[in-house]
Amino acid sequence: MIQCYPDLLQPSGLPTIEWVSPLAEDEYAEYRDEAFLDRLGIGHLTASLKDFWPQRGPQWDALGVTSSGPVLVEAKAHVREFFSPPSQAGQRSRKQIDRAFASVRADLGVGRATDWSELYYQYANRIAFLWWLRE
């Protein structure tokens, strides 16, 4: 749940953010997959997302909409949270995730020294989703 700190909810110098999740009237639900796209008003990207990533993708801590585009928030309380457990995906899903990560790494010029599905899985899948949205 996002506590109400006005400077955090609407940072100065940025377009006005309309927060669409989590909301009290929605029991502070957090969204993933096509539901997060629908909340952001970009549900037309659902088929593309299914090609990019398997079901049960990242669940976003907060979602917002601005005149410049969507706002996706992943909140971390401390650095250790970046070291998430490895992906628990099955073989088919893992292949799809590995393809997605390979595309992101290639486009960003990042080597394969670390298997993102093993050590930094949660952090890496958020980066992959942001990359996918920009593409």
Rank of each mutant, 00 (worst) to 15 (best):
Y123M: 12
L49M: 07
A106W: 00
W53C: 13
A24E: 13
L130K: 01
R134A: 12
R92K: 14
E81F: 05
D61G: 11
D51G: 13
R32Y: 01
S117Q: 11
A124D: 06
A113N: 06
R32A: 13
V73W: 02
L72S: 04
W131Y: 15
E27A: 12
H78S: 14
Q91C: 04
E118F: 09
E25I: 12
S21M: 05
W19R: 05
R112H: 10
R92P: 01
Y123N: 11
L63K: 05
G41A: 02
F36R: 07
L63I: 09
A102W: 01
L14A: 02
Q91M: 08
Q88V: 10
Q55I: 11
T46W: 00
L119I: 15
L23M: 07
D26W: 02
G57S: 15
L8W: 08
S84I: 07
A47P: 00
Y123D: 06
A29H: 13
W53E: 08
P54H: 03
D33G: 08
V20T: 08
S117V: 06
G41S: 00
W60C: 07
Y121K: 07
Q96C: 01
Q122A: 14
S103D: 09
I2D: 08
G69M: 01
V79R: 12
I42T: 03
G13W: 03
P58G: 08
R80V: 12
R92W: 02
V20A: 06
P15T: 03
L119N: 09
V20P: 04
W53D: 08
A102N: 09
V110C: 11
A102C: 06
R80I: 06
R32S: 14
F83D: 02
A77P: 02
S84K: 04
E18M: 02
R134N: 12
W53I: 13
R92E: 14
D115L: 10
W53Y: 14
S67A: 11
A62T: 12
L37A: 09
C4W: 11
P22A: 12
P54A: 09
V73E: 02
S21K: 00
S87R: 10
D61H: 11
